[in-house]
Design a protein around this nucleic acid. Structure first.
Lengths: 277, 277
DNA sequence: TACCTGTTAGAACAACAGTACAAAAATTGA
DNA sequence: TCAATTTTTGTACTGTTGTTCTAACAGGTA
């Protein structure tokens, strides 16, 4: 991306955080970043599109920070999960997202609304996946309920705490919510109390992303199957492949090279190639 | 209120529900209600003030419907509580408040923001009070946590269910949340796990309202004390006074007359007079 | 009728997002 | 180096918005 364009985005971002979206006029952004109107509309089709670009940048940063947190730790590490949730709240706070996200809804811009909705859904999807990873497959039938419940509790409480300026920090809120979920899980499983179908989010995901996740899960499944009958050396390599697979952008060459040295690797190689195709 | 003015409010309300706040221009409202701009600004100082008037009307209706639900039932009646919560969600749905409330935040209008915040706080205050009434004083130290948790869970889930168009109704969501709260209460009390100070909301309430609630609670306390040593006739009258006290606008004359016929009524009469003073 | 008062209609205004376009500047490529 | 191309700029313009201004109007009173 253009240096100049990034500059405009940063200036706009700062203004949005400081004054809010609606209160920031395009002229403000022009003054702040020292470009002309023509250039602005050369970079961004509209003010809304600019906002979306900023959101995307923030979301990317969130994903990276989350990936960094989990790196080298097992997926069921609860502490890692807590820290990942915290990342989201920190980013939201830093960027004044509570106000910004809200702000979008009035705009009545269909594109923007859809964008936010999609983001919300993918966040819940993430949480659902992580809940299953942390608590195991036995929570699967209740995973979307737990994800929505947790997301609702944390966001709502943090929002509330900020509004009334209570002397409580994000860690405490997340800790509280985690303890509630921990206890609720036993009770929910015991009474088999499910509200929503855990597949309900799938049809709201973009087809492309779904396909990618399907392929990814096939690779991981194959790795899991191989681990059961692998010697020590192969196992270490398989664990590496597993970790690499969970990175933001798994490196194709590295994976194929490593996979190539494992015996009986035909299916695995096929799955990897499928994934990168 | 002026017939014509009510008409304008209704037209605007319908348009806001249908198209959203921002997407409804004042011109739309003028066309719909057949008045001129001058008249509009004679009735309402601004578009925001009009929105606030509509909110106020909706909130009043909510309060009334809630009062109607509880009428003649004991405060600890859990089913009544559930129905009252449902009232709120129904009203929100009917009036598209999820979108409308969101819409307010971008407006960057300080007055409007404060108004919504105040409403949110008073809703939580209501929920806190009701939680204590339903579950008893033993949940008092955790009452604001429970209120925020419940509010967050229900609103978030309903919002989510609507967004993804899941086949789940409000009753199911509220039922689910209630079961979670029921179980959480035992666990929270057992582990003495509190997050927020139950007094935290008080300083955000308008002083006037706080005083009124204090006085009201004194009357109800006195009624409760008297009930313990009352004969059957007095008890029936006390129950009536209790119900009347919980109405939107308790009738002074009726209450004083009834209270006057109960023996040892000096303190009660004093509290009633204080309340109406 | 003449006067006053509050209501009404609609033109006028200012701020805004976005468009159009010609001139100037910067970049590219031979 | 220099011409071709792309990017940037400045400015004027459009159309819409919420809000204000002002003059006409209606209805009651002296």
């Amino acid at each position: 991306m253009n240096e100049r364009k990034r500059n405009v985005m940063e200036a706009a971002h700062a203004l949005f955080v400081e004054k809010g979206y609606a209160a920031t006029s395009i002229q403000d952004i022009l003054d702040q970043s020292g470009i002309s109107k023509g250039t602005f509309y050369n970079y961004f089709p509209s003010k809304n599109e600019l906002l979306m670009s900023i959101f995307e940048k923030i979301n990317l940063e969130t994903d990276q920070r989350r990936a960094h947190v989990i790196a080298g730790r097992p997926v069921h590490d609860k502490e890692a999960f807590i820290q990942q949730v915290k990342v989201k709240m920190e980013v939201s706070k830093e960027n004044n997202l509570f106000a910004l996200f809200q702000g979008v809804f009035i705009s009545e811009d269909e594109e923007l609304k859809k964008f936010i909705k999609q983001h919300h859904i993918s966040e819940l999807r993430w949480m659902q996946r992580r809940v299953i990873e942390v608590y195991g497959m036995r929570v699967y039938p209740y995973s979307i309920d737990l994800a929505v419940m947790m997301h609702g509790m944390i966001h709502h409480t943090v929002h509330f705490v900020m509004a009334i300026e209570a002397d409580v920090n994000v860690d405490q809120v997340i800790g509280y919510a985690m303890r509630r979920v921990d206890a609720a899980i036993e009770e929910i499983i015991h009474t088999n109390d499910a509200l929503l179908d855990p597949h309900v989010l799938e049809k709201w995901q973009p087809e492309e992303e779904r396909a990618r996740e399907r392929k990814k899960s096939r690779v991981l499944q194959e790795i899991g199957a191989m681990q059961r009958e692998a010697d020590e050396r192969s196992n270490e390599l398989l664990v590496f492949l597993q970790d690499e697979m969970r990175e933001e952008t798994p490196r194709r060459l590295v994976m194929e090279t490593v996979a190539g040295t494992i015996s009986n690797n035909e299916t695995l190689m096929l799955r990897i190639k499928e994934f990168f195709s």
